[in-house]
Write a protein that binds this DNA or RNA. Structure first.
Lengths: 126, 126
DNA sequence: TATTTAATGCGACTTTATTGCATTAATATG
DNA sequence: CATATTAATGCAATAAAGTCGCATTAAATA
């Protein structure tokens, strides 16, 4: 199934690129100039996520947030379960912290997968 | 507002204690012998969570999971935003990893809050 | 035992997200 | 360039998770 370039996708991707924070459906829709259907928005976002173009994070509110992928290796599409995301509290930027984070568990514990969101200040904002 | 001891709460708490994994609403309801209303189950669970008796985790599926609190300091009720949870892939147990985890970020980055789920094997199962 | 009010059950409702299906339009093909 | 193919879209319906209002029930207390 080959992907096609469409107006909707371009605009949504542009918004995600311009935005420096992860957006949920509502936030994204609010930024749209064109009217794009809810379902389409979700489909575009999930397609991006599947393609490794953006990452999808589930917030504490249970909603899906999407952010343009900064540090992600686009070849490896196994996004969801092997890294943390970092969100800067000042500039709002969301990044992947793929293997840059050192997780040390209590002794006897071994890590298989981890994911979650770390909040703080990035190097530009701290 | 003083808490009252009720049948429903006892049964739900018992199930959470017996279960060694975090349960969502459906899973919990399936284990009930008595019929307890959806709304009640949610209210009981959130009450437990507010009281620091159980912890609430948002899964990757966006659903709320609840697990009896093993390592949590019941005095400090600020559960939600300052620790990771660890889930053992074998025995399914969910624990708080309050300050036992060493988070080291890329240089220049500072941590304010973190939460998420780490999967692996606990000391008993690894 | 009577009183107070926390907890429950029921139903309606909200929000988030997905799916089916007919239509539109992006790409490929001749 | 015209046409065929089918990915992408819009619309409506639906699903699923969770919350809320309100009348009722039943713990705790006096």
């Amino acid at each position: 199934m080959k992907r096609r370039k469409t107006q909707s996708q371009e605009e949504i991707l542009e918004i995600l690129k311009d935005s420096n924070s992860a957006l949920n459906h509502d936030m994204l829709q609010a930024k749209l100039t064109t009217k794009i259907d809810r379902a389409t928005i979700y489909r575009v976002l999930n397609r991006f996520s599947d393609d490794g173009l953006v990452h999808k994070v589930i917030g504490d509110d249970g909603k899906q947030y999407f952010a343009f992928c900064l540090n992600c290796d686009k070849e490896k599409k196994q996004h969801s379960h092997n890294h943390f995301h970092f969100k800067c509290l000042k500039c709002g930027k969301v990044e992947c912290l793929k293997n840059e984070i050192d997780v040390s568990l209590p002794k006897g514990y071994t890590t298989e997968a981890f994911n979650g969101l770390i909040s703080g200040y990035c190097s530009n904002c701290s």
